[in-house]
Design a protein around this nucleic acid. Structure first.
Length: 644
RNA sequence: GCCGGAGUAGCUCAGGGGUAGAGCAAACGCCUCGUAAGCGUUAGGUCAGGGGUUCGAAUCCCCUCUCCGGCUCCA
């Protein structure tokens, strides 16, 4: 019986029974067939040389598409496992999926891999690829599979698993064989190992079986695979570029901040330039908070353990808190990991009426969290940081409007800093790590969902990722090279008001319980600056640049005029430095550019004569000479205007 | 916290049981220069810290600290 296929362009074509995807691709064109790694039929991926089981919507998956690359990577992972098993016959292997930009495979060889092992393994992989071994798919029964993988306990566990994400339901499982190596796998794969044109192993790492630290730790090998050498080179180049914009490198280089080891892990000091950057960001934070109707409060860094007992932090958050400090009369104090309990105490300081609500309290609050030593990562994961935190107390009826407002606030905030791509995540309850009853959680979660939908924002649900006191919306931004960072968060909380017995008097004179909204716009000021630094590769937009312009006198006799120019610009509100070093003009300009100052102004004899400057903006290849000083002041003042 | 790697001058790195090295940066001097590195001189290190082995340790061994890549965890 012939089968009918519908191509992506909507056209329909008929083929005889038993036709393979590859044959169809060939009939469309030889170049398409050469680039094909698999086909998709009604949403299901099939091996290229497998006879099409039926008609349907058909498309060819090529090696340079994301889907195609992920098939390449999956096949590369198999070759990696094959190489490891051939070099380490006693090895057992676990799983080896494709991931963004690459793949990994987890093994147990009874010891860690050494860098030399990695070289040998990669060489072995190249042999397997050169041999161009075909991947052969085979469906076998579960019993057969259990026998086949009898020596590989992790594989047995997967075969026995009922988790549909781990193994397809049903009596049969599929395996792929090539030249004596066999792996449990759903496929599809490239037709043969020779299709892997650009594979490279990157690093090894320990990884817990099934991602649970209570399980044994396996040895993971990471690698990457691309459709050709050029794509691989481009990827490696991208990694290098990312390294250059690493905030941990740029921070000290640009004199923004540093992590002196004498302080201890995860603790930063802010230098003058970084301090200016912080001040500008914090000023903007205060400006917006004020505009959105928040009040400013200030709270201490310590509180009696009693406060943390009431709030539930000692039950649910103690692992991330610094140990207690014993003071007079056996009183125990704790350093704060969050600001919420303090703001609650401000709410509680007097009787509240529904007329006082919503009450919006904000604070740039320094918090300290004991992060496990291995997770610390520059400013993005520190042990001490500052949240642009707020807590809004509202009536149940007022909650919707408050959530809408908070989301608008966050969106505006991110736009102001040049982030246009967000991902929102809705994090729900984890029954084992939360307080309060399920119905309230559901209600709060539903409110957040409606807020996201009303704003027309795409979101992903993250099951069980909520805070212990309520569900939350987290916003990730994407930086210039596509990496995601979590910054903002909006959280609904019915429970802390309950635990602290918060009340307000309603219009009909009854005691009611307010609801809280926790919100951080930047998240942590430190993390936000880390992300901003990487996003802009240290070349901050002019309104944020700690030094907005450097004045370069051509010779010492121009210093007086340089000072005049500096005064004019400072009077206009710009942050300007004069380079007084005895270096050559070229060197002074090079320094200003490498420290990413937005503007270089060169002044020489002609400028002194005519009251002009030479202007060179960051990123421009050439200068504009003889710009009248008045014009330059006007231009730069305009360019330095930030969001209001 | 776990697995691996690393720590030598402010930075980037060489050296690898027998007196501590380079380039850049710094200070000083000369040069006074028109858009991405002018020339010279000088200074700078308890080789992360502690303990051990040795006639002798930056080098070998042990412990600790810090950093890097992952896992787990998270703003």
């Amino acid at each position: 019986m012939p089968i009918e296929l519908e191509y992506p362009d909507g056209s329909r074509h008929t083929f005889p029974d038993g036709t393979t995807g590859f044959e169809v691709a060939q009939s469309i064109g030889p170049r398409l067939a050469a680039a094909a790694v698999a086909v998709e039929l009604d949403g299901q991926l099939l091996d290229l040389h497998r006879p099409l089981p039926s008609g349907g919507k058909f498309s060819v998956v090529t090696d340079s598409s994301e889907q195609g690359r992920s098939i390449l990577r999956h096949s590369a992972a198999h070759v990696l496992a094959q190489a490891v098993l051939s070099l380490f016959p006693d090895a057992t292997f676990a799983i080896g999926p494709p991931i963004e930009d690459g793949f990994y495979y987890d093994f147990d060889i009874g010891r860690p891999f050494t860098p030399e092992d990695l070289e040998r393994i990669e060489a072995k992989m190249m042999e397997i690829i050169a041999a161009d071994q075909p991947f052969v798919r085979e469906a076998i029964s579960r019993e057969e599979a259990l026998e086949l993988f009898a020596d590989h306990p992790f594989k047995l566990e997967i075969i026995r698993s009922t988790e549909p994400s781990e193994v397809a339901p049903g009596e049969e499982v599929t395996v792929y064989r090539n030249n004596g190596f066999v792996d449990l796998c759903r496929g599809p794969h490239v037709p043969s190992t020779g299709r892997l044109k650009a594979v490279k192993l990157l690093r090894t790492a320990g990884a817990y079986w099934r991602g649970d630290e209570k399980n044994p730790q396996l040895q993971r090998i990471y690698g990457t695979a691309w459709e050709d050498r050029r794509a691989l080179e481009a990827y490696l180049h991208r990694l290098e570029e990312a390294e250059k914009r690493d905030h941990r490198r740029l921070g000290p280089e640009l004199d923004l901040f540093s992590f002196p080891s004498e302080l201890g892990a995860g603790l930063a000091v802010w230098h003058g330039k970084g301090g200016m950057l912080r001040k500008l960001i914090e000023d903007h934070s205060r400006r917006l908070h004020e505009r959105f109707g928040f009040e400013f409060v200030f709270t201490p860094h310590l509180a009696r353990s009693e406060l943390w007992r009431i709030s539930g932090h000692l039950d649910f958050y103690a692992d991330a808190m610094y140990p207690g400090i014993e003071l007079d009369n056996d009183q125990e104090y704790r350093v704060k990991p969050m600001n919420c309990p303090f703001h609650i105490l401000i709410y509680k300081s007097r009787a509240r009426s529904y007329r006082d609500l919503p009450m919006r309290l904000s604070e740039l609050g320094g918090v300290y969290r004991y992060e496990r030593s291995g997770v610390i990562h520059g400013l993005l994961r520190a042990r001490g940081f500052t949240q642009d935190d707020s807590h809004t107390f509202t009536t149940r009826e007022g909650l919707r409007a408050e959530l809408d407002m908070h989301l608008e606030f966050v969106t505006q905030w991110l736009h102001d800093f040049g982030f246009d791509q967000f991902d929102a995540m809705l994090s729900t309850r984890d029954p084992s790590k939360s307080i309060g009853d399920e119905e309230l959680w559901d209600e709060a979660t539903e409110y957040l969902r409606r807020t996201l939908e009303a704003a027309g924002m795409d979101y992903q649900v993250e099951e069980g990722e909520g805070a212990f006191y309520g569900p939350k919306i987290d916003i990730n931004v994407r930086d210039a090279i596509g990496r995601r960072w979590q910054v903002s968060t909006i959280q609904v909380d019915f429970f802390l008001p309950d635990r602290f017995g918060l009340e307000y008097t309603s219009a009909d004179n009854r005691a009611e319980r307010p609801v809280m909204v926790h919100c951080a716009k930047a998240g942590s000021i430190e993390r936000f600056i880390g992300v901003l630094t990487e996003h802009y590769a240290g070349a901050f937009p002019m309104w944020l640049a700690p030094v907005q312009a450097t004045i370069v006198p051509v010779a010492d006799r121009h210093l007086d005029y340089a000072d005049t120019v500096q005064r004019r610009l400072r009077d206009a509100g710009l942050r300007v430095e004069v380079d007084r070093s005895g270096e050559t003009v070229g060197e002074k300009i090079r320094r200003a550019i490498t420290t990413k100052h937005p503007v270089v102004l060169v002044v020489g004899d002609k400028d002194v004569e005519a009251t002009t400057v030479g202007v060179r903006r960051y990123g421009e290849d050439s200068e504009r000479r003889g710009v009248p000083l008045d014009e330059a002041v006007a231009e730069l003042t305009e360019a330095a205007r930030g969001p209001r």
